[in-house]
Write a protein that binds this DNA or RNA. Structure first.
Lengths: 108, 108
DNA sequence: TTATTATATGCGAATAATCTAATATATTAA
DNA sequence: TTAATATATTAGATTATTCGCATATAATAA
């Protein structure tokens, strides 16, 4: 039973394990964008972008809205942005810790 | 430059993309544990557990302390627990949303 | 030193994630 | 209906993760 929860939890978090998908989340932070808008901001083939978006939608991280010929993707739950930010903070803290260590070593 | 940040960010978040590793984080929430303790709580071969621990350590998520023959693993940054919790909330909200939908459909 | 316990590592097989290229579908305009 | 634009899907090749098994190392006790 608990095992299933961990599996679903991991399934959702898979979203964070790819740089392109993190970029998508970052680009959608301040509101929805169409595939086209994302595509023009992202240096990635359109098909590949669609694949990532589709995965993120399946996992319930993104939601879509059609407007004519465009499809707008938005972040389904703001908590996802929060988790994204927290993990980025973890990364930045790691980097600055390493930087301090290098300086210490250099000045020794 | 930004691309590198996304890659490192994804590298750290990889930690969340596997159910065993999530279980490890969950087990270490309230403090460090030795590999042996984890192993006896976890239904996973010892070698495989060590592999996960080693990966999480490399990524800076866990830190270790040796005490005699035992090695204690602990969570290096409490923010990791926070991110873990937030994503679990996202999951639970999804599940209850789906549950509500099922009930609606059944009663229709 | 040898035996024992705790932990880590290396390697290969199995599986999963990712990308590319081609093609399909859906909407709108002409 | 046809053409054009936006988006999605499929299949296959490539690469990365995960795991099991065997073995290695490290600390301690006898």
């Amino acid at each position: 039973m608990e095992k299933m929860i961990y599996e679903m939890h991991a399934g959702i978090c898979t979203i964070f394990s790819n740089p392109k998908r993190l970029e998508i989340i970052d680009l959608l932070r301040d509101g929805e964008k169409s595939v086209n808008e994302l595509s023009s901001l992202m240096d990635i083939p359109q098909a590949n972008l669609s694949q990532h978006l589709s995965l993120m939608r399946q996992r319930g991280i993104l939601e879509t809205r059609r407007e004519g010929v465009n499809i707008y993707y938005g972040i389904a739950n703001p908590k996802v942005i929060k988790a994204f930010e927290i993990m980025r903070e973890v990364l930045l803290e790691q980097l600055s810790k390493h930087e301090k260590m290098f300086k210490k070593i250099k000045s020794a």
